[in-house]
């Protein structure tokens, strides 16, 4: 097991390297200039040149790349070009918010999605199935900036249960929990919709297998057939989707973060992109990539728990 984990970590190194290189090149290929973003529209070329020199942007590309690689390997991502703050501090300050939201949305997605999917599969082509499928379609089609604003109008302005500004104090667990509810539901509903669809199709496939018919013929109770023989075998694709979705949640929660005024990784990425904050983007991508690698690893480990046959591999 430990060997497996180590082997996977080593395997991630080339991926990380490739991503670093891509990010380094892409942020520099897109038009736009960090010095101009920092100095504003009245800046003279002399001021831009002076700032480029200060930021190290006047060095040749290869040298910038070597500097960047050296820094990344030592875990020092430098300072944001725009705010001047150390990147690691900024990321660590928002990471708990991102993790809170990701986990909470995950819980909402799985708790709503899996039972709904099982239910729809067992009621295949009957009224319950149609309603579940319709609801999941609605969940998928509602953009966050619409559903989020609706939530705020209802729960913050009308009933006054939650605040509009969702930035929580990290040292206050109650505050953290209160402020994650609305965004987690908003984000979790879309995820639940996906999970419902995947669970339903996986269950349909499994439930038509021979061993299910055998189990039923043997007289195994129906409940046990569904949960033990059915869902456990249907869980593999569901876990895969959940794993992939965590990656999406970490980076794509930006709209939710903006609507609910939460700090977060997604929001920082978009901000850094708008301002061409090269160093910030590079640092964020490395951290983001690392998180994805960890999530994928956890997903693979989860396979082993669900299906003993995977363990040996």
């Amino acid at each position: 097991m430990i060997g497996f984990v180590l082997w996977r970590m080593v395997g991630a190194v080339p991926t990380l390297f490739a991503v670093l290189m891509l990010v380094f090149v892409i942020v520099r290929v897109i038009p736009g200039d960090p010095a101009a973003a920092i100095l504003g529209d009245q800046a003279t070329p002399a001021a831009v040149a002076a700032l480029d020199a200060k930021l190290g942007l006047d060095k040749p590309m290869w040298q910038q790349f070597i500097d960047f690689m050296g820094q990344s390997l030592s875990g020092d991502f430098g300072h944001s070009m725009v705010t001047g703050r150390p990147i690691v501090t900024d990321v660590l300050a928002v990471l708990p918010h991102t993790i809170d939201l990701t986990l909470a949305a995950l819980v909402v997605g799985v708790v709503l999605g899996v039972p709904a999917g099982v239910y729809a599969a067992l009621r295949r082509n009957r009224f319950g199935d149609y309603v579940t499928r319709l609801l999941s379609l609605v969940g998928l089609s509602f953009p966050v900036f619409v559903s989020g604003i609706f939530m705020l109008l209802l729960f913050a302005l009308h009933w006054r249960i939650f605040p509009v500004i969702g930035a929580a104090r990290l040292d206050d667990p109650v505050d953290r929990l209160t402020k994650v509810v609305l965004p987690a539901i908003t984000l979790g509903i879309t995820m639940a919709a996906y999970i419902t669809r995947v669970t339903r199709s996986a269950m349909l496939h499994v439930m038509s297998e021979d061993y299910i018919r055998t189990a039923r013929a043997k007289g195994v109770p129906w409940r046990r057939v569904v949960w033990r023989h059915g869902l456990r075998n249907a869980a593999m694709p569901v876990v895969t989707v959940v794993g992939l979705y965590i990656g999406i949640l970490i980076g794509n929660s930006v709209l939710t973060e903006i609507v609910f005024n939460r700090p977060g990784l997604g929001k920082i990425i978009v901000g850094a992109l708008n301002q061409r904050d090269y160093t910030m983007l590079q640092g964020l991508m490395v951290i983001y990539c690392f998180l994805i690698v960890v999530v994928n690893l956890l997903t693979d480990l989860a396979y082993g728990f669900i299906d003993p046959r995977v363990k040996g591999g």
Binding site: I149, L152, L153, A156, L157, P163, V164, I165, I258, N261
Partner: peptide, 19 residues
């Protein structure tokens, strides 16, 4: 001094007395 890029959310927070 709160950074709230979304116009809609900022207006809602203002209306709600949070700003």
């Amino acid at each position: 001094y709160r950074f709230i890029p979304s116009d809609a959310s900022r207006d809602l927070a203002f209306e709600n007395g949070e700003l």
